[in-house]
Amino acid sequence: MRGPNEPVLEVKNLCSYIPTSRGVIKPVNNISFSIGAGEIVALVGESGSGKSVTALSIMGLNSPSIKYEKDSVISFKGENLLKMKKRQMKKIRGNEISMIFQDPMSSLNPLHPIGKQIAEPIQLHQGVSYQKAKEIVVNLLAKVGIPDPENRLNDYPHQLSGGMRQRIMIAMALACNPSLLIADEPTTALDVTIQAQILNVMRDLQKDTGISILIITHDLGVVAEMADRVLVMYCGEIVEEGDVYSLFKNPQHPYTKGLLASVPKLRGASEKLLHTIPGAVPNPLELPKGCNFSGRCSYATEKCLTEAPNLVETGKDRRAACWHIVDLQTEEVTVHA
């Protein structure tokens, strides 16, 4: 049995690689983290940093070209998902762990009515008929804020707006009361006002059900709004981790600091040009020898170019991978959540 503080999900040394003709790419390189019961954890990072690959590893839905190192572990309720047979994994997907995706316009099957699509995981995992599942579906639709749910069951996705479709996706993901929801950029494709609504729906449902959520985003506003804890990814590695409040207040890794500085602020900042991190993400086939961020880091020293820093404990519930954390901490931090 799990204790009250035991994590729902524990990722240990997750290492994925893709052999290509020009060398091996490691989309996710030796990351470890956990998600506690009822916790909302945000995974942030630039495009290509390995967020989606991490999420899809948990679901077991990465493309077959992506392989995992032998000692990678994704432990869910005491079992290593990476070692599971397809038949066992099928019982977890959509039932105990479910996922919603970035583009609600294309994530629903255009040829099936939404009622049937939401009912599908219920029918699959609980072995009930559509008639039986229908009642649950109507409840779910009401919960995610779809008005007049009884009469929406036979609607097709093309009849609904993007925001409505994302609500449908959420309803579908929550259909079997999973203990973990993975949301891969759930609001990126939506209008700003709709984004806020969807985040509200997710937060309310989290409070109601106590589900754990892993939310992937590159929008730090979303992080501040939703998350308890943040994981910052860069080039397939976690470079910093901490609770939202202290991480925003006091970023320890230069990359996190850069990310925070590039967020537009409402007050006072309108005159100043937005800060952007100089340079570009290195080619995954030609990663630098030392710290992956060294090519873009203004704090880099000789050591950074030759030795890669490990992710180490830097405070209460804080971890960072940087040789010069201390220097940063003594610096005035100008960014606020």
Binding site: M59, K86, K90, G94, S98, F101, S107, L124, H125, M169
Partner: peptide
């Protein structure tokens, strides 16, 4: 994307093809 959604519900290859891919 909707095929990925179908897999994420817990369907395996054959039901995914039969129920979601073939008609499309």
């Amino acid at each position: 994307d909707y095929i990925r959604t179908a897999y994420s519900k817990g369907l395996l290859l054959w039901p995914v093809i039969w129920k979601h891919a073939l008609r499309n």
